[in-house]
Amino acid sequence: MYLSTEKIKTDIQQIDWLQLYQQRLASVKDDRLTSFYKAGTFAPDTPIKAIPFVAVDFETTGFDPKRDGIVSIGLVPFDLQRIHCKGAKHWIVRPRTTLDKDSVVVHGITHSDIKSAPDMMRIVEYLLKALEGRIVVVHHRGIERPFLNAALEKRINEGIVFPVVDTMELEARLHRAKPLTLWQRFRGHTLPSIRLVDSRERYHLPYYRQHHALTDALATAELFLAQVSHRFSEDTPIRELWK
């Protein structure tokens, strides 16, 4: 019993991304996706110093990819040396679902902003181009990949897969490796927060206002560089980081 769970775990961890890209390339119909998969991804042993990354952040109307939609997209390309604002992109898009008041409070994008905004499909070509040949870095992989997948499925009946490096998960490895003991809980200990702002603070990164997709993408890229320089090395293979 114990063994088999272990085995499943490693299987999940070791998705063969190269092969998966090949399979998708053979089956997708959409030109934009064909081009995306054609650019391929990296062998699992590739040291991260040789990899171009792109940090991505979505602001959404909620947390459920099936029901909620994307309202803005920010991304910034980088490598281990530097983050390049020159390639940064920011789009406001019109979700097919309605904006509720709560999420407006979070990301500050209002009805009038999105009334003039294009549908996701108008920018998807540029978005995929910006991700092509790069490894995506996000803070909390529960948002960007599933939302992009769902948005594409809704619109062109084809989803998307790609590996991501999740800076929140990298923090969790350090701070959530062991649950608190009863004694610790009794003493009032709490687990350190692994939210973007709090994680950044641990690496002495400056405070950035949250919930602007481009700023959050930049903040994520900076956090990743800090994590690498404190905890990994430029020779760390990508397989140890991606999911």
């Binding site: 980088f78 040396q81 530097r82 983050i83 604002c85 020159k86 990164l205 930049l218």
Partner: peptide, 14 residues
């Protein structure tokens, strides 16, 4: 200028 900026991180003592 800001669109041309690049960003880098240096750990203490590097």
């Amino acid at each position: 200028v800001v669109t041309e900026i690049e960003v880098g991180y240096f750990k203490a003592d590097t």
